[in-house]
């Protein structure tokens, strides 16, 4: 996909999505980087029997990061993410394939910003993490 610029971007443009399937290794590394010891992310008997989840839970901010990456990869080196809003609405579990994507909803030529409605969906098509990302374009 070509690099977006203020001249080329229009409301309704769709961003290329990406699939993320988190495995044990990535889930471990993510929580290790945070120093997050919450057992729902690595202790399957605890997650299922004590907290009642169907599996190991993917960390919410990890999913948020994938959503932001979709927008950030769209602009590449030609701009900067200046605003992020998201909420983790549904839990996601180890082994699920999540898909990111987004749409341009506003273009402000004076501020050189583009507003993007973003989502992360699970395999059922449910939006697990909706959000809005604002990017500022250099070009």
């Amino acid at each position: 996909m070509s690099v977006p610029s203020m001249a080329s971007v229009s409301v309704g443009d769709e961003l290329a999505g990406r699939e993320h399937t988190c495995d044990h290794v990535q889930l471990f590394l993510y929580n290790a980087v945070l120093f997050n010891a919450h057992r729902i992310h690595y202790d399957l008997p605890y997650a299922t029997e004590v907290e009642g989840y169907p599996g190991l839970v993917i960390a919410g901010p990890q999913i948020g990061d994938w959503m932001v990456q979709c927008a950030d990869n769209w602009i590449g080196d030609d701009g900067m993410v200046v605003g992020i809003e998201y909420s983790n609405r549904l839990a996601s579990y180890l082994g699920e394939t999540l898909t990111t994507g987004g749409t341009v909803t506003a273009v402000d030529t004076d501020a050189r910003t583009v507003t993007l409605d973003m989502y992360v969906k699970n395999e059922n098509g449910d939006v697990v993490t909706p959000g809005v990302v604002t990017v500022r374009l250099d070009g």
Binding site: G60, P61, G64, M80, V81, V82, G83, I84, E85, Y86, S87, N88, R89
Partner: peptide
């Protein structure tokens, strides 16, 4: 569920 709202300067 909670939410985050971030402004990057």
């Amino acid at each position: 569920a909670g939410g985050l709202d971030i402004q990057h300067h």
